[in-house]
Amino acid sequence: MAHAHKLEIFRGLLKFKSNTQKIWGVLIFLSIVTAVEVVLGIIKPEFMLTTSFAGMKLLNWVFIILTLVKAYYIAWDFMHLRDEKAALRRTIVWTPIFLVSYLVFILLFEATYIYDVFKSGFLAWDF
C-alpha cells in the first residue's frame, strides 16, 4: 500500500486531517450504527414489525442494510481497501457478493418450499 491515504468518507462529505483521525472518526460512526441496531433490537418498533417490504419485515431490512454499511466501512477504512487499486478491490468484493447472493437465493427458496411441504403436505412433525 502506498503511504498516501484517502482521507475522505461519506463521498467527501467528511474529510479528515490525518489517517489516525480518520480511524477514530470511523470508530465513532460504527459505534453509532451498532447502538442504533441494539436499540432497535430491544424496543422493536411496532410499525417496523408490521410493515413488510419484499417479503421481509421492515426491521430486518434495516438490520441487514446497517450491517452492510458497517461491513463497507470496516473493509474500506480498516482493511484499507479504499487505498488499494480498483482492480484488487473489485476482485475481492464482487467475487463473494456474486457467489453469496446466488447461494442465499437458492437456499432460501428451497427452505420456503420445504416449509410449504411441512405445512400443507401430509406430514406430521409436531406431535
Binding site: I92, T95, P96, V100, L107, L108, A111, Y115, F118
Partner: peptide
C-alpha cells in the same frame, strides 16, 4: 480472507435455510 468469507457465508446461509424451513 475471500475463501474464508465464503465458508462463513455458507454457514450463515445454511442457518437461513433451517430458519426459513
Amino acid at each position: 480472507i475471500v475463501s474464508d468469507a465464503l465458508t462463513f457465508s455458507g454457514f450463515l446461509a445454511a442457518y437461513g435455510f433451517s430458519r426459513f424451513k
